[in-house]
Design a protein around this nucleic acid. Sequence first.
DNA 1: CGCTGACCCTGACGGC
DNA 2: TGCCGTCAGGGTCAGC
Length: 253
Amino acid sequence: MEGQTVANVIVRERRLRWPVPTEIDQLLPGQKINSLSRRAKYLLFETDAGTAMLHLGMSGSVRIIDVDEPAAKHDHVDVQLESGKALRFRDPRRFGSLLWAPDPLEHELLRNLGPEPLSKQFDGDYLWQKSRGRRVSIKQFIMNASVVVGVGNIYASEVLFLAGIHPKRQAGRIAADRMTLLAATIKSVLERAIAAGGTTLKDFYGGDGEPGYFQQQLEVYGRDEESCNRCKSEISLIVLGQRSTFYCKYCQR
DNA sequence: CGCTGACCCTGACGGC
DNA sequence: TGCCGTCAGGGTCAGC
């Protein structure tokens, strides 16, 4: 889409996580997409008039189609291009969002986000400093986007297993050297997952239309009652902050 | 300010 | 076959 011009925007359903603002259909048509980028899990489509911010939520997806392809159920938005192709956004659960901002990094939802996990500024020292005095569990801590972005529920469990840290351990009670290991493990898990094309549990497909393969490398996620690859004991399942959490009670302290 | 739990919504699946 | 309860990979927000 980069460098292409928007011909028209069709909004069939405005009721997403937040209502789709009229700027999307009023201002986007006629604009050239200067660049595509990303901050946290928001996809950013930058134009001279402003930036469209797209979040896929839990069940959202986008794909490139011919403009005349009939819309199916849950196909909420089409961004039609002058080329005759369109970006089609589908989201059955409507937890996703499509917003508009003159300056996205100053948008209320982006301005207080923590660092990107693969950036240089995200390291053990940062995690250690940020966590002092915090009593919340380390798993909820690393899933908190104001601490660090990009660590979702699958990777949080995986990271903590590989770092040998119990998911319920209070964030503020983890020593600096373990935080260094934790930050490095977050980076390596995300890098490996990206290299594998992501994790396809049931219906995730990457931008290339291919499923991911990282699920074949999962150590604990979804493996409750199966045996730990390291010590052979049974993987445990608990709920932390309403999210399923998998871990080995012998390998993680 | 930090933390917890409720909530947003649809579809898939298992048990009966 | 159908109904009901449960669960799902994300994230925000009110209220304490």
